[in-house]
Amino acid sequence: MKKLINAVDDVVTEALQGMQAAHPDLIEIHLDPNYVVRRGAPVEGQVAVVSGGGSGHEPMHNGYVGLGMLSGACPGAVFTSPTPDQIYECTRRVNGGRGVVHVVKNYTGDVMNFELAAEMARADGIEVEAVVINDDVAVQDSLYTAGRRGVGATVLAEKLAGARAEAGGSLGEVAAVVRKVNDNARSMGMALTPCTVPAAGKPTFELGDDEMEIGIGIHGEPGRERMELETADRIVDRLMGPILEDLPFRSGDRVLAFVNGMGGTPLIELYIVTRRVARVLEERGLRLERSLVGSYITSLEMAGCSITLLRLGDELVRLWDAPVHTPALRWGV
């Protein structure tokens, strides 16, 4: 294992300390339990938005704390859900008196830990509304699985819900934005290489030099199928097909396209992917209204990408364009 770390046990803590050093104007970190809050939290009279999940997906979620996005984020160990005490304390810390929305990715552990934390916060009289994100079309949603995973739509939901909260939305209104995003977004990812969890010391799975995994999860969970490597255009078509069919997206729809890098793929390749995404959208008569291209929800150093399409109307476009100022996303400020 070759990593820029000091000690395996210190990875999460030291990364948080580094974030604090880089962004003292935007965030405050708390250690043991670990959480990150917007500087000056709570914002009185404003609904708070809290998310969290395993570390290793940077900049998600800590990098999205700040004006117009998350009020707080709870990082777990690498690829491991945060614990209820972390989420509970973060929730208390950011509550500005109008309630807290929990944005939860649909993983068994995340859902259970957030559920326990919400029970604890409600016992203190804090209003909590949790919304689960499950946009990954690689997983069949049925009674026989834990359901679809939460992936790319999470980043979009956090931005849009944060904008709604910043504009004075009520708890119900902010939660409704998260739900709207989840209902109108679909994603799918793929991997060219595996990644190594520091504490494990070796890759989470093996992938041959000429192989790729289609439908990969963001923790290196094996995907739908493993196949021989293809061109970028062919790969994009494999991802776009299931995404477009699932919602379904129809001719005339306005969409936000989010082309995401898994951590080890350079931006030049993501633009090659984006080129094909734009062509497919055009062929289908979809209007590319907004886009986001870059590594925003990653799997450590995994190479690969995911594509998320969000169908949006005027309200979501307005919220997307609203000012945001966080360590990882900034515009309009």
Binding site: G54, G76, T80, S81, T83, D85, G109, N113
Partner: peptide
């Protein structure tokens, strides 16, 4: 265990 394990195993 609730506060140190995380994942699904922690709450379970």
């Amino acid at each position: 265990l609730l506060s140190t394990v995380g994942g699904a195993a922690g709450p379970l």
